[in-house]
Design a binder for these strands. Sequence first.
DNA 1: GCTACAGTTCAATAGTTCTAAAACAGTTGC
DNA 2: GCAACTGTTTTAGAACTATTGAACTGTAGC
Lengths: 103, 103
Amino acid sequence: MPQYPAPPIEAVTITGVLFALSDPSRLRIIAELDRLDAESICDHLGGELAKSTRSHHLKTLRTAGLTHTRTQGRYNYVSLRREELDARFPGLLDAVLAHAPVD
Amino acid sequence: MPQYPAPPIEAVTITGVLFALSDPSRLRIIAELDRLDAESICDHLGGELAKSTRSHHLKTLRTAGLTHTRTQGRYNYVSLRREELDARFPGLLDAVLAHAPVD
DNA sequence: GCTACAGTTCAATAGTTCTAAAACAGTTGC
DNA sequence: GCAACTGTTTTAGAACTATTGAACTGTAGC
């Protein structure tokens, strides 16, 4: 299952991160990953979305540097790059997630 | 000089703010306003931009709730809604502006 | 091999955004 | 009134984005 690798954290830009988080579906996915504090299967993220739409949003999040994806067997395990992002943009995720939809 | 009023702070959404800040030109404008800590004339913001492009970005920032505009005579004075935004999204602007271009 | 499954990629459409020239509106000062 | 000035609005084009169905890739299990 081919995938774009997540960019190195130094290459992650503030504008790229802000844009990735500015879509309600993507912000929800990030909020879910943060709340879980663990990996999640793609299919369990983002609520009611067509699978191709979900895949598109997950790709956007990955290429913006917000998530990491690991493939094992049939599943792709997605995780939030919390520590790296907190180190690069201190306080940003906390501030954003404080106002993310709690669904 | 007709203008859209800035929305009440309660109507300002996190996704709207993140989107407004996700454009390099707009982020630069916000960083300039923050550094100035004062009102600024439209023409002095955003560096080298066509005036219609500048006006477009300023409108985007205003409707997203980030700025306030006051007209006096020939000039429009733009200011950052710092206190209101800090109250609604604590820590967000600080986190973002810590990584805004310093130009 | 075959079926079921997870997920990506492709293709198409609809809507949005960025950029900027041109035209326009309001203000100032002569 | 008129010219200069600030800024908005209009209009247009190119580029990008969101959404989804369909086709496709790879894996698991029988």
